[in-house]
Design a protein around this nucleic acid. Structure first.
Lengths: 341, 341
DNA sequence: ACAGCTTGCCAAAGCGCTTTGGAATAGCGG
DNA sequence: CCGCTATTCCAAAGCGCTTTGGCAAGCTGT
């Protein structure tokens, strides 16, 4: 059933039907009701492509996920983010398109997305240090928002980020105040901006406690469970092992925990673990006494908020950029305790 | 830059440009080369919507994710599936659309997706017992493939599934052969078809070993880490606790493991854990000696294969349905051992 | 040299919608 | 009862592409 057929069926012009359905005022309420009823009855929904062609809009938001050494799409964080964003899109009648791309073809994909008119705007994920996508997207003139920030970028853009530096500063302080002196940092890939900031917060906290930053106690990598396990294992076998771990993701932290278990070390008693917690649906850390001491910030909420930011931007592309910084919340859990050395 | 402009610029008709770009034979190779060069130079890509309108195709695949009590999109399995599917789509020039929907509005969303012509086909996730979406999609005439199966459905459809029943049968046999008699089943939601089949496999294995099926040792629910932890905790506190756990997801299994740790029970020695393993990128279980004894099957590979099945179906909707059943592979890990009772 | 092909190109129609610019009807005061 | 403004509707153009049907050269074989 298309517009022409519906028009013939009702004996009303296509124009009027279109207007009735799109809420224009120049159609009587009686006619509008009749049109809507008929549309429902016949299951008529305007053809997306025709509508898009006529309006010049796609009503679709793009998410470009770079894979390669980092497999962002397979990161559980992505699912929670999309769940949040999807909710907002659905509420505003937007579709959500996900594109997978190798890092080499990134620029090409963005250009084509624009040239093809496939999306009205997009969300940029996992910004890197001095990310080249920022000037590219600005040049393309496609509305976009960034989940995170990119240090070194000199263009202005809209973003929502967690204050990673202050979060890691705060949690490092928590550990030093418990008497820990050897604190390991199990970080995300430091080509990614958030990981750089987290490291800075950690280093700041160590410095403030007059503690040295030991390269042997710092790693960066993709935040899988096994990555946490492997690195914690190596560090625990050092002649001078850490008494506390600061971890960038709860999934990693599970791996660190496993490394402790292997050695019969009890988290929070023998060795402490603190982590960043994105409040992943499948890894809740919110019991009366949370398993992990953590800095929490919901990535799902971030998804919802960023989607809204983007829609606002699409509706008014000339509005000043929005820059939002969320503070992560400290949550005391069972995985940290005083240093016993 | 659109077709008309490019045509004017080159002094060649729109027809010829379109044909040159789409690989039609009735254009000389010299002209084709000239057109392609100009298209690249000016960053011309045909407008998706116009192309779609003209061809009647969207070159887009839909994934409808039902949320509600079960939050499938936030399930890390989803990310791995999409990564696999996305690879195939990209290779064939398809876009990937993800739609989030509450279970109540499901039928409506599918109908609208069809009516709007938004997608050329779709992947159905998480089929339930006697799933009503099956007759709906068949009636709509939208090409689709199913990740899993739906018992009780009497229409024919294309699917790819893991043989969940045989997998759980086999792993149950493994546990009984190790002398376990009290084996707990930490299952997924049994409204979902795969969970039903897994239970059947488990029950079959128990029966074959002349072991009773104890309702107190069976749970179903969304397979979060905490769900595994909570239920294992309860069961371990029973007067007659299980000596082995059979778990439906490696994330759950991590929770079960945590419950053991809490009680200073060593997995594989004091209590055994076996699990289904979807080979999630962020939860590798593939060391020289895997952490968990498991039935493995890559959900990412399933995504890639299903995407291909769907594209084949779109290209020839009248072809007979494809029904593929993968056998999960048994992997001996460190988490199972003889019953010591 | 000419009919009969093939080759290489093009003009125009059409995909299903929105929107512009009118036109017809109704309502109103004078 | 007439002219004027609202109200309600419509025909047709246009969005950017693909595709149909056809035309003009350039070959071939006789």
């Amino acid at each position: 059933m298309n517009l022409k057929e519906l028009s013939k069926h009702l004996g009303i012009s296509q124009t009027t039907i279109s207007r009735a359905l799109n809420g224009y005022p120049e159609v009587s309420e009686a006619t509008r009701a009749r049109v809507i009823a008929a549309a429902n009855e016949h299951g008529y929904s305007p053809n997306t492509r025709a509508q898009g062609l006529a309006t010049g809009l796609s009503r679709c938001i793009g998410h470009v996920i770079s894979v390669g050494d980092s497999g962002e799409m397979v990161n559980p964080i992505f699912g929670d983010f999309m769940a949040g964003a999807g909710e907002t899109y659905a509420a505003h009648g937007y579709d959500m398109m996900v594109t997978r791309v190798g890092q080499r073809d990134e620029a090409d994909i963005y250009r084509r997305l624009k040239a093809r008119g496939a999306v009205d705007g997009l969300v940029m994920h996992a910004p890197r240090f001095n990310d080249t996508r920022l000037p590219l997207l600005t040049e393309l003139g496609l509305p976009f928002v960034v989940h995170g920030r990119s240090s070194g970028a000199n263009t202005s853009y809209s973003y929502l980020d967690v204050n990673n530096r202050s979060a890691f500063h705060e949690v490092t302080r928590h550990l030093t105040s418990l008497g820990h002196r050897r604190i390991a940092l199990i970080n995300g890939q430091e080509q990614l901006d958030f990981a750089i900031r987290r490291r800075q917060g950690y280093e700041q906290g160590m410095e403030e406690a007059d503690l040295p930053v030991d390269a042997a106690l710092m790693t960066q990598g993709e935040m899988t469970e096994d990555y946490g396990y492997q690195n914690a294992t190596v560090m625990l076998d050092l002649p001078d092992p850490p008494s506390a771990f600061l971890v960038s993701s709860i999934i990693c932290a599970a791996g660190v925990r496993r490394a402790l278990d292997d050695r019969n070390l009890r988290p929070g008693e023998d060795v402490s673990i603190a982590t960043f917690d994105d409040c992943l649906s499948y890894f809740r850390n919110s019991a009366a006494r949370p398993v992990f001491t953590a800095m929490q910030s919901s990535v799902r909420a971030a998804g919802a908020a960023l989607a809204q930011m983007l829609i606002d931007r699409i509706n008014d592309p000339t509005a000043p950029h929005t820059q939002t910084l969320w503070e992560a919340e400290f949550v005391a859990g069972a995985s940290t305790g005083p240093n016993k050395d």
